[in-house]
């Protein structure tokens, strides 16, 4: 397989998952794009080092994790803003008019917003482990491989993160 073909197949099969993973770590579109692009560039450059039969997604997630970690270190102390989506003018100050929004949507928005905010309270390492374990349902071993740490570390980070989320989210869930 040629290098360009390898890249094309990687984008096709894993582009969406990688972008989503990056988005969940960064919380905004622009940084997720940067992270995804950087990760794929690294994959492209190091394509010969990929061993068939191993998990590509674990490889690229690990690259994303490391790039994100580096970026956070680099930006330490700076503020970041939420960046709007492609072609979504409502992101620029316009929330939907109250009169035409179904009440279900509001409740779901509220719960999603709760989760979004609760995730923001986690440390980057805790957030990564929650995304991988609970949203993407990876095993502890796979998460340890991606994050480059021991299973024990995964376990303890997950326990702490879940405890924090439990305290933040469960009371609100029970109310609604």
């Amino acid at each position: 397989m040629e290098q360009a073909e390898f890249l094309e197949e990687a984008i096709e099969k894993y582009g969406k998952a990688t972008y989503n993973f990056a988005y969940r770590l960064t919380g905004n579109d622009a940084d997720a794009r940067d992270l995804t692009q950087d990760a794929f560039i690294r994959v492209y450059r190091a394509w010969r080092s990929f061993r068939p039969g191993t998990s590509f997604i674990s490889w690229i997630y690990r690259i994303v994790t490391n790039l994100h970690r580096d970026e956070l270190r680099r930006r330490k102390g700076r503020y970041l803003e939420e960046i709007p989506e492609d072609n979504s003018p409502q992101a620029f100050g316009g929330s939907r008019p109250l009169a035409v929004t179904p009440i279900d949507d509001y409740i779901n928005q509220g719960l999603d917003a709760n989760i979004t905010l609760a995730l923001e309270k986690l440390s980057p390492e805790q957030k990564r482990v929650i995304v991988l374990a609970d949203m993407e349902e990876y095993s502890y071993q796979e998460i340890a491989d991606i994050m480059g740490c021991s299973i024990g570390t995964v376990r303890s980070r997950l326990h702490r993160a879940r405890a924090l989320l439990r305290n933040l989210l469960l009371p609100i869930r029970e109310q609604s």
């Binding site: 969406k16 972008y19 779901n108 349902e137 989320l165």
Partner: peptide
Amino acid sequence: SLHNFGKATEREL
């Protein structure tokens, strides 16, 4: 909830 949140907020590339 977390899993559903992940699905609901999934984005296209």
